[in-house]
Amino acid sequence: MALLEVDDVVVQFGGVTAVNHATFEAEAGRVTGLIGPNGAGKTTCFNVISGLQRPTKGKVRFNGKTVTSVPVHRRSKRGMGRTFQRLEAFGSLSVRENVRVALDIHRGIAGVVKPAKADIDGLLERVGIRAYADERADSIPTGTARLLELARCLAGDPRLLLLDEPSSGLDETETDAFGDLLRDLAAEGRGILMVEHDMDLVMGVCDTIRVLDFGEVIAVGDPAAIRADKRVQQAYLGYSDDDEDDVAHPPEAGATDETLVIPVVPANQGATT
């Protein structure tokens, strides 16, 4: 049984389908990469998993239990942690305070009564941002802020980490160090599900890669298999007349008219009239 199971999830906004029957899983102790072109529905998937977005249809199971209607904060208590593509650091607090808040929240009432003595600086050291500990979080570079979000998650000792484009804003050396950190975290038994655009990082650290396109998983496999997958290349580069094989046998995503024409859902007709 996988740590996280996303089962046939559909999300529609007005007439647009953002996630289309997505089914995939992430296992404990492994790094799973979720990749795909812009607008493929990756971040929406994350929002559904973490509870910020209710799916139109489908189920999310965490640790064997269905959590589809469990509120955001309870999912966190059960061991989910996530970072955001568009930063959500607490801008008016220092980096150290950001982690301390996370720790306080994690400990609940106990945190309020007896402030935590956990090794915050150690945690900052681990993700590699110890030097920024006293800076205000809205004054640090993006890449650093992403690592801060990771440190904040780790304060809650999550079993599953959802990382939304964690490496953007990091330079090459930092990205390498970050890859090592991910391997370490997985080795501790945590499951990691990561949306990422840096293919070198994805190919380098992921055990499994799932490719999402038009809200559907179009390919699953280890890095080598994904690299060789023709459909993945098409998803990223588009079709050309040279791809004759594939024009003759188009992938399911584009096979029938039903999936081409995105389902029509009556939008709110009311506004101002």
Binding site: V16, A18, P37, N38, G39, A40, F214, Q234, G238, Y239, P250, A253, G254, T259, L260
Partner: peptide
Amino acid sequence: DELSMGLAPLIVD
């Protein structure tokens, strides 16, 4: 800008 975003290949064509 990204005319094809979120659209199926045949539509993009």
